[in-house]
Simulated scan of single mutants.
Amino acid sequence: MPLKGESKVINTILNRRSVREFTDKPVSKEDINIILDSGHWAPSGLNNQPWRFIVIRDQETIQKLSECTHYSGIVAGAPLLIATFLNNETSYNRTKDLEAIGAAIQNMLLTCCELGLGGVWLGEILNQKEKVNSILECPSDLELMAVLAIGEPVPKERTSTRRGLSEIVFDEKYGQKWGE
């Protein structure tokens, strides 16, 4: 049995990084299905599965979507986009449904990492969500939550930092630092 911190899941969580540069290699349909399946197995309140996903591989559509964000280079350079939506028609509790969608997105990003792919969660594109919905011909009950840009990562070192647990975790009451 692996020691704490040495399990495959924990290593994937600790080593996943946002990838913003991709090769031209397309993502296989098999990998796309694995990514989507991982997303739809996220937990949701009452198992209502409030998410809807649109898979985008067409270069013309990708180009149009890239014009909806300041991060146009990331979007235009990705061979695969997955637009993630809240289905307001099936929503029962907005907060819980948004949390569920965040879990679905995280599942998909972790799965990308496991498959040797890279991905990044794009939120700034939400400023143009009406335009995105128009491009993707979405019904009005779908509300854009994020776009994931996915592909084979351009090889390079990717690092990240996090605050120490003592800065963000409290023991019993706020103000009582964890670990003191």
Score class of each variant (00 low, 15 high):
Asn127Glu: 09
Asp97Leu: 09
Glu152Lys: 04
Glu67Gln: 12
Arg20Gly: 02
Phe53Leu: 10
Ser134Trp: 10
Leu117Val: 02
Gly45Asp: 01
Pro50Gly: 05
Leu80Pro: 07
Ser140Ala: 15
Gln106Ala: 12
Ile54Pro: 03
Leu136Cys: 05
Arg158Pro: 01
Glu60Gly: 11
Asp58Ile: 07
Arg158Val: 03
Asp37Arg: 14
Val120Gln: 08
Phe85Cys: 04
Leu98Cys: 09
Leu122Val: 02
His70Asp: 05
Cys68His: 02
Ile125Cys: 01
Phe85Trp: 13
Gly118Glu: 06
Asn88Met: 09
Tyr71Glu: 08
Val120Met: 07
Ile150Lys: 09
Ser134Tyr: 12
Asn48Arg: 13
Leu65Cys: 10
Ser28Val: 10
Leu36Ser: 12
Leu148Asp: 05
Val55Trp: 13
Ile82Ala: 08
Lys131Asp: 13
Asn127Val: 00
Trp41Pro: 00
Glu21Ile: 00
Arg57Gly: 02
Glu157His: 12
Ser44Pro: 06
Ile82Cys: 08
Asn127Gly: 15
Thr61Cys: 13
Cys138Arg: 15
Leu122Cys: 03
Ser44His: 03
Asn93Thr: 01
Ile34Gly: 06
Glu60Ser: 14
Glu21Ala: 11
Val19Phe: 04
Thr95Val: 14
Pro155Thr: 11
Pro153Leu: 05
Met145Cys: 15
Glu130Cys: 03
Thr95Arg: 14
Leu142Lys: 15
Val55Met: 12
Pro26Gly: 04
Leu80Phe: 11
Gly73Ile: 00
Ala104Asp: 11
Ser28His: 09
Val120Phe: 06
Thr69Leu: 10
Val120Asn: 10
Met108Ile: 09
Leu81Asp: 05
Gln63Met: 11
Gln128Glu: 15
Trp51Cys: 02
Asn127Asp: 10
Met145Asp: 04
Ile105Tyr: 01
Gln106Pro: 00
Lys156Leu: 08
Lys96Asp: 06
Ile32Phe: 07
Pro155Tyr: 03
Glu152Asp: 08
Ser38Met: 11
Leu80Ile: 08
Tyr92Gly: 12
Thr159Asp: 01
Ser140Thr: 13
Gly119Glu: 07
Ser66Leu: 02
Val75Gln: 05
Lys96Met: 09
Ile34Trp: 03
Glu89His: 10
Arg20Pro: 07
Arg17Asn: 06
Cys68Tyr: 02
Thr161Cys: 03
Cys112Arg: 03
Phe22Leu: 11
Ile105Gln: 10
Arg16Tyr: 06
Ile82Gly: 07
Val147Leu: 15
Cys68Arg: 03
Glu137Ile: 11
Ile34Val: 14
Gly77Cys: 11
